[in-house]
Design a binder for these strands. Structure first.
Lengths: 334, 334
DNA sequence: AAGGTTCTGTAAAACGTTTCTATCCGGCCG
DNA sequence: CGGCCGGATAGAAACGTTTTACAGAACCTT
């Protein structure tokens, strides 16, 4: 309970508080003998630096914010894991904000982050951004966009090329000989869903087919249950496509399940590919082909960019990094 | 960039800084007219309270720590979501720590939390705890154990009854008429795995069977891949059990996959039940029976207990809450 | 009308660091 | 031998808030 402060350490080591601070922050500036004495006092007294006092005086904290849309989604979980690893390695703490898709909650979270004077924020913005990120930047808080292209040159962003992903997925289906292709997507208000669709159309075009022939089924959520419903619709229409591309793996697993129960063989009757390559894609009964995204890397790199921007503001060059997704072919498209 | 402080607000509203602070923290104490004037100044100037200064002076922060073993595991993700929801609703920020199973990393994380003078910590301790939690408590940081029974009466803990869960799962298998039961488990260094095994044995005993007949296969990790390997072993032994209980759903999904590929029908030849009821359990081709745990609730309640302990230290009563898991019967045990 | 009691608001002292300036001391050069 | 220099440390101010003690004003009571 008795908080031991830098003064106590100073008294115990027979030096001034300033010297203790130097040992903590610029160990090179203090003579080895004194340094040892201070370090001994620190561990003897169990001193732990008061982060808030430090932040207050120094004008900046060793904390970053992470604002994601849905921490329950394996995609964001991986991003968070990558970010946390890098941050904790560099002695930064990560404050987690889950916007749950609600712009209100996102605003509340950003406010909390601003109060904490975080050094920077990693954010996957939900919906369009009416200048609230600019407001953060005005406060001197760096922002790195995650899984979202930058809308301004003076900021960093890391994203994955969703158009290329959609194109690669459908090109893979076409290479297997399929011609009638369906796209099962989540809400088309989601940027990723739209871009993957554009990629799919591009692949059709490149193969000399009419992009308008892409049969699009829009589900209300990106869950397995929605996938089942979508597949039921396709089946009800009687005229099954030769191949189905799903906007994420959860949808694909739902489609897979519905097809198998209806006696449709995968991949013999219908080939199937998902997106994200979540762990369960490989584990499903007919293992699922998918587009792998470097999610953990996304979190790592975004954090590295952010901390570089904070720690070396002069030499820092803003970057827009676009990862390429990778095709993982499994049984469902053999 | 120009940080606006409480003084600027005070000047702008024609009051003293103390009054602004009162408006912020004890609005009732200040006359309505003045309050409005101050509030106008606040929003006009875009003032955001400096959390660190506040923490420093007030002696406590509005921040809690969350230390989990593996943020990639859906179980912990749900816990985190529950915790974040409650915390953010009460204006608290959550600092995330991922120990990744390493006691070293856990220590580092706890140190960061101590530096930030968090109000309290939610922790699922990894391995045995050599007094480091006590050290936190000495510093006035409350601790609530998550998914772990309390080892002391003067602390809160929320957990799920793993013995009861193991018992219910196996009782369900026995009720279907199975007699030869196998248990596919993760490392038996994990408390949960051991307790679920004890529950399984208890169910056998209660049915008049010999608990020693439980065929235990210990996998090195709790993943689908390990589950496949475990099932391959069972198949290789020639003598298939009538029912398999897996220590978690990932293992079960792996077992399911291996069985189906070997031509074993589920549930006709072998019944199968997992644990955790992750989303993918319902979505797999043969939907998977499982034991559902109130994970989101676990996070919520733990946070509520923690914040109650912080905010009402006098009236707070320490609680040890033990949830009961719930059987979810699906196709794999029909 | 005097004394007390609320009710509002002010002023100033903390909280624990960091950082800037000043001081001390030993040694080196001329 | 005196003056200087450079390294090491001390001392004090500042960061933005909360909180305590207190001062005025207004209102009530007798």
């Amino acid at each position: 309970m008795a908080m031991v402060s830098i003064k106590d350490v100073a008294a115990h080591a027979g030096v001034s508080p300033g010297t203790v601070s130097n040992v903590l922050n610029r160990p090179g500036k203090v003579a080895p003998a004194t340094r040892e004495r201070v370090e001994a006092a620190i561990s003897e007294l169990g001193f732990v630096r008061h982060g808030s006092a430090s932040t207050l005086r120094a004008g900046h904290s060793r904390t970053i914010g992470l604002s994601v849309i849905d921490i329950g989604n394996p995609f964001f979980t991986e991003v968070a894991a990558g970010a946390e690893d890098v941050a904790s390695q560099l002695g930064y703490a990560v404050i987690l904000g889950n916007s749950a898709g609600s712009p209100d909650k996102e605003d509340r979270n950003l406010r909390v982050l601003a109060e904490h004077r975080v050094r920077g924020v990693l954010i996957t913005p939900s919906g369009e951004d009416p200048g609230r990120l600019d407001r953060l930047r005005e406060r001197g808080i760096s922002v790195v966009l995650v899984d979202h292209p930058a809308h301004r040159p003076d900021q960093c962003a890391v994203a994955v090329d969703d158009v290329a992903g959609g194109r690669a997925a459908v090109a893979h289906l076409l290479a297997r000989g399929a011609r009638a292709v369906a796209y099962v997507t989540g809400p088309l208000t989601i940027r990723q869903c739209v871009e993957r669709r554009e990629g799919a159309k591009a692949a059709l075009r490149a193969a000399g087919l009419d992009p308008a022939d892409l049969r699009v089924t829009e589900a209300t959520t990106m869950t397995a249950r929605s996938g089942e419903k979508a597949a039921a619709e396709l089946i009800a229409q009687g005229d099954l496509p030769e191949a189905v591309f799903c906007a994420n793996d959860l949808l694909a697993l739902g489609v897979l399940r519905a097809l198998l129960r209806a006696g449709v063989r995968v991949p013999e009757d219908v080939a199937l590919i998902g997106y994200d390559d979540i762990d369960f894609a490989a584990a499903s009964t007919v293992s699922l082909s998918s587009m792998r995204q470097p999610t953990y890397q996304l979190g790592r790199i975004a954090t590295e960019l952010l901390l570089d921007e904070c720690d070396n503001p002069d030499t820092h060059a803003h970057q827009h990094i676009m990862f390429q997704p990778e095709l993982v072919a499994r049984e469902s498209t053999q």
